[in-house]
């Protein structure tokens, strides 16, 4: 049993967390303009539709590290410190960025632009949280 704060799926986000449980990363996509966004809201941030009807569609989960920080003291319970958070720009669409833990560990040497791919942490039964791992050199 984890002390980490667990996501509480709602009517909109339920498909997202269901996909995470299957280790599939999805992003909300506006049904009006087909643009991905970071999180679903009342309106689409691109076409400003008042009726975006976002659907969660699978994305590659690959991207580049734009920046990071090592969390040595956390305001949240349930996380062992230190851990490393990366801010990743996904390949799937420019400007879509996502923050997650880098599972390679807190002392991983990093440079801006390093390649990462989504990974999942199984935090408790039926709940998996997206994270990232360094892409293995081809």
């Amino acid at each position: 049993m984890t002390d980490r704060p667990l996501p509480v799926p709602d009517a909109v986000s339920a498909p997202y967390w269901a996909a995470c449980a299957r280790h599939v990363l999805t992003l909300p996509r506006c049904s009006q303009c087909a643009t991905f966004t970071s999180l679903p809201d009342e309106t689409c941030p691109h076409c400003h539709s008042l009726d975006p009807r976002f659907s969660f569609e699978e994305v590659s989960g690959r991207g580049q590290v734009r920046t990071w920080t090592v969390i040595r003291q956390s305001f949240l319970n349930g996380f062992d410190v230190p851990f490393l958070l990366v801010d990743v720009q996904l390949d799937d669409q420019p400007h879509v960025r996502m923050i997650g833990r880098l599972l390679d560990g807190p002392e991983t040497p990093l440079q801006l632009g390093d390649r990462v791919v989504v990974a999942f942490e199984d935090v408790t039964a039926g709940v998996s949280v997206p994270a990232f791992a360094l892409e293995k050199a081809a």
Binding site: D3, L6, P7, N77, L85
Partner: peptide
């Protein structure tokens, strides 16, 4: 916090807070 609801569900579960 033990649960991450609403907007918080998109960052807190990963440790971003």
């Amino acid at each position: 916090m033990t649960e991450a609801r609403n907007e918080r569900q998109w960052g807190v579960p990963q440790g971003f807070f």
